[in-house]
C-alpha cells in the first residue's frame, strides 16, 4: 500500500515515456532494415536478387535495349534483406538504407 503510494507520487515527477512522434523524431538504431536502394551504374545484371527474393518484389523487366530494367515494389517487399546479402557488389549496386518506405 505505502509502496504503491510512493510509486504513484514518483511517477508524477518522472520523465514522460511517450515520444511525441509526428512532431518529434524517433531515434532509430543503426542498421535498421529499411527501403532497398539500387544503382543501375554499378549493377552487373547477374539477376541474383531477383532469384532469391521470396515475394518477387524485385523484377528485371525486359526492354528493347541490352540491359533489363530494375523494378522494385516496396509494397510487396518483406524487408528480409536476402537480396542484399546475395548481391556480389553489396553496398555499391544494392543496399539496405535506413529510410522509411513511403506511404501512399
Amino acid at each position: 500500500m505505502i509502496k504503491s503510494i510512493i510509486e504513484s507520487f514518483s511517477n508524477l515527477f518522472a520523465k514522460s515515456e511517450t515520444i511525441n512522434y509526428p512532431y518529434e523524431q524517433i531515434a532509430k538504431f543503426k542498421n535498421y532494415r529499411g527501403l532497398i536502394e539500387y544503382s543501375a551504374d554499378e549493377c552487373i545484371f547477374c539477376y541474383k536478387c531477383e532469384k532469391v527474393c521470396p515475394p518477387d518484389a524485385i523484377v528485371f523487366k525486359p526492354t528493347k535495349e541490352k540491359n533489363r530494367l530494375y523494378e522494385y515494389n516496396p509494397n510487396l517487399c518483406i524487408y528480409c534483406g536476402e537480396c542484399v546479402r546475395n548481391c556480389p557488389k553489396e553496398d555499391l549496386a544494392l543496399w539496405q538504407s535506413e529510410k522509411k518506405p513511403k506511404i501512399i
Partner: peptide, 15 residues
C-alpha cells in the same frame, strides 16, 4: 523490443 531492433534491425520479424 529495443534490444531486438538493435540486434536484428526489425522489431517483430527478425529474419
Amino acid at each position: 523490443m529495443d534490444i531486438q531492433e538493435a540486434i536484428s534491425g526489425n522489431r517483430v520479424q527478425f529474419d
